[in-house]
Computed example of a mutant assay.
Amino acid sequence: MITLENDQLIVKINQHGAELVSAWNKEAKLEYIWYGDPMYWGRHAPNLFPIVGRLQGDQYHLAGQTYYMNQHGFARNMDFEIVDHDVDYVRFSLSDSEQTWRIYPFAFRFDVIFRLKGTKLFVDYEVHNPDKQKSLFFSVGGHPAFNLPLDGGKFSDYYLSVKPEKVYDRLRLVGPFSNPNMPTPFNADIPLRLRQEDYHDDAIILKLDRQKTTFLLARLANQHGMEMTVDNAQYLGIWTPAGKDAPFIAVEPWWGIADTVDATGNFKEKFGNNVLAAGDTFNGTYSMNFF
């Protein structure tokens, strides 16, 4: 377990999956990251790579071969290497291996970087394609979950507000699969009141189109909460497990999305995939302010 600390925060990150497991605000005396109770959901804030969401049949096709991969990919279940570490900074790295080639036949390096600054934690994703010829196809995303209620009240006392305040496209899910051809409007002029019954059809997904977007999670009293700024993501997922009355909400920046309802299985044609040319590096960033 890696610990980062400054005058405001103590943050703990597990080397397994490079997963954030704790963000403790010293002054507020509050734990913001979901405790990971397996009765509801046993994770805290997994990193999703090289897919986000689920594949049709948990499989895809590439160069005449069929490969099998579970929901959200394999990075969350692997040990990362610690390549750089200071009191308020750590860089984790995962590279291709014999194990990954069996299910994902690409050379890659996936780095997850955490930086503390005041009450903010910055998370940077770097995906590098070391291949000298082939392009790299991938998705990546965050899945941080936050304790609710945080500082009193009940789950439904909390809301999520979005800036810029505008009408976003909301992508619907059919089972675990996306349906991008039939979006519905999501009016961010009105804060989203959090209600457990709104997640019976899985996550609420907003299309961000890589525009810098800020999400405020708090009660109306607004004494304590979490503010997430997503710099360049394609989508944002809002999720709590249906029918469990789980005491947390996940706010998830995604650079990619689950297979569409009509996906062909061809990985090079996968909706929402990023394509990285040989030798290039991708950057995705977001931050969380724990106030």
Rank of each mutant, 00 (worst) to 15 (best):
L148K: 09
P164H: 08
P183E: 03
G175I: 04
P176Y: 10
R172L: 14
N147D: 02
G141D: 02
R170T: 05
K154S: 10
P180L: 01
V162S: 05
V140D: 03
P180N: 05
T214G: 05
F155K: 02
A203K: 10
D201G: 05
L150M: 10
N179Y: 13
D201H: 14
N187S: 10
A218D: 14
F215S: 08
E165L: 01
K212F: 04
V162C: 09
Y168C: 11
L148H: 04
M182N: 15
A203T: 13
S161A: 12
G152Y: 02
I205H: 12
G152C: 01
D202V: 01
F155Q: 00
D189N: 15
V174K: 15
A145W: 01
L208G: 15
F146V: 09
T214C: 05
T214D: 03
Q211Y: 03
I204M: 11
D157S: 07
P191M: 02
N147G: 09
Q196M: 09
T214N: 03
N179A: 11
I205G: 13
L217C: 04
R210H: 13
M182V: 11
D151L: 00
G152W: 06
R210Q: 15
N187I: 01
P149R: 06
A218K: 11
L160D: 00
V140I: 14
R193P: 00
K207G: 09
D169C: 08
E197H: 14
A221S: 15
S178T: 15
M182S: 15
P183Y: 07
V167R: 07
F186L: 08
D157N: 11
L194M: 04
L148Y: 06
F155P: 00
N187T: 03
A145I: 07
L217S: 08
K163H: 11
P176D: 12
P185H: 07
Q223T: 15
E197F: 09
L217K: 08
L206M: 13
F155H: 07
L192I: 04
E165P: 00
P144C: 05
P176R: 09
R172S: 14
L206V: 12
A145E: 01
L208F: 11
P176F: 08
L217V: 11
N222P: 00
L173H: 11
F146S: 02
I205C: 12
A218N: 10
F155C: 00
E197N: 12
A221G: 01
P144E: 00
K207L: 07
F155A: 00
D198Y: 11
T214Q: 13
P180F: 08
D202W: 08
S156R: 10
V162N: 03
F186S: 09
K166V: 12
K212R: 15
L206W: 09
